[in-house]
């Protein structure tokens, strides 16, 4: 019984210590703003986590927009409201699916890669060698990746939504015959810049912070063995996905909740 209590205590202390380390790392990464010298590193990371994620984001956005138009049309047409297909697709994408699905895809595509890369740098003593060369790994490795994630993900979410709206147009207008004028004009009249677009961007920024933070911390804190890195990579995807879905509910309640 005492052993059991001691085990719970040890695990609790270990979790609190890990949270503390993660907090310190986030603090260090935020305040280690990319120096002029390291801007090149941040741009390089934007290419790795952002540009190289474009394909999966564009293809997913296109198909999700197409499926939404197809599903939406079959429901709206019964009420003669197929003209509202445009705003339905746009609002769903800008408010919810754009930020959330992008964050989930980003966690799977870029987050896991960040964890594995940093974990392997730790396992091969590259992080230790940086420290011994008097180069702060937080500034050199963590900060460029953190800021690259923060910059890339909101952009990817906007691209996802834009491509999704085009996908909806292909299916709704070009295939199912919804009037192009009503698709675009009702969308233009309905979508509010602050309430829909800006709130979606805010969601993306929050998700970007959480996903990138988890990914980098899990790599930095990984046990430097093949099993440890594998576990850290899995945890990045699982924890990021759960955090994104949970936070999405909280943010939606704050932004669009019933007053």
């Amino acid at each position: 019984m005492i052993d059991w209590v001691a085990q719970i205590g040890a695990r609790t202390i270990s979790k609190i210590a890990a949270t503390g380390r993660a907090g310190l790392m986030l603090f260090g990464a935020i305040f280690a703003l990319p120096q002029l010298k390291n801007i090149r590193l941040t741009i390089q990371q934007i290419y790795v986590v952002g540009v190289q994620s474009l394909l999966i984001i564009i293809v997913s956005g296109l198909f999700i927009g197409m499926v939404m138009a197809l599903q939406g049309y079959t429901i709206l047409v019964d009420y003669g409201a197929e003209g509202s297909l445009g705003p339905m697709v746009a609002l769903s994408l800008l408010r919810e699916l754009g930020p959330v699905v992008t964050a989930l895809l980003f966690a799977g595509r870029a987050g896991s890669a960040l964890t594995a890369e940093i974990g392997l740098m730790k396992a091969t003593e590259q992080l230790s060698s940086l420290e011994m060369m008097a180069v702060d790994p937080l500034r050199r490795v963590v900060a460029p990746r953190f800021w690259a994630g923060m910059i890339s993900m909101p952009m990817l979410a906007l691209i996802f939504s834009a491509v999704g709206i085009l996908g909806g147009h292909f299916v709704g207008v070009d295939w199912l015959g919804v009037d192009a004028g009503s698709y675009w004009s009702i969308m233009q009249a309905t979508v509010d810049w602050n309430e829909d677009v800006v709130n979606g961007i805010i969601k993306s920024v929050v998700f970007a912070t959480v996903v990138t933070w988890i990914a980098i911390f899990k790599g930095y804190d990984a046990i430097p063995t093949s099993e440890g890195i594998s576990k850290a990579t899995t945890e990045t995807v699982v924890f990021s996905s759960l955090a994104v879905l949970g936070l999405d509910f909280v943010l939606t309640a704050i932004m669009f909740g019933i007053e």
């Binding site: 003593e125 590259q126 060698s129």
Partner: peptide
């Protein structure tokens, strides 16, 4: 400490070259 480390270096077992 970082200033001090400029006067020391370490050859790691794995080499620890940036890959």
């Amino acid at each position: 400490l970082f200033e001090l480390r400029r006067d020391m270096s370490m050859l790691f077992q794995s080499g620890a070259l940036f890959t």
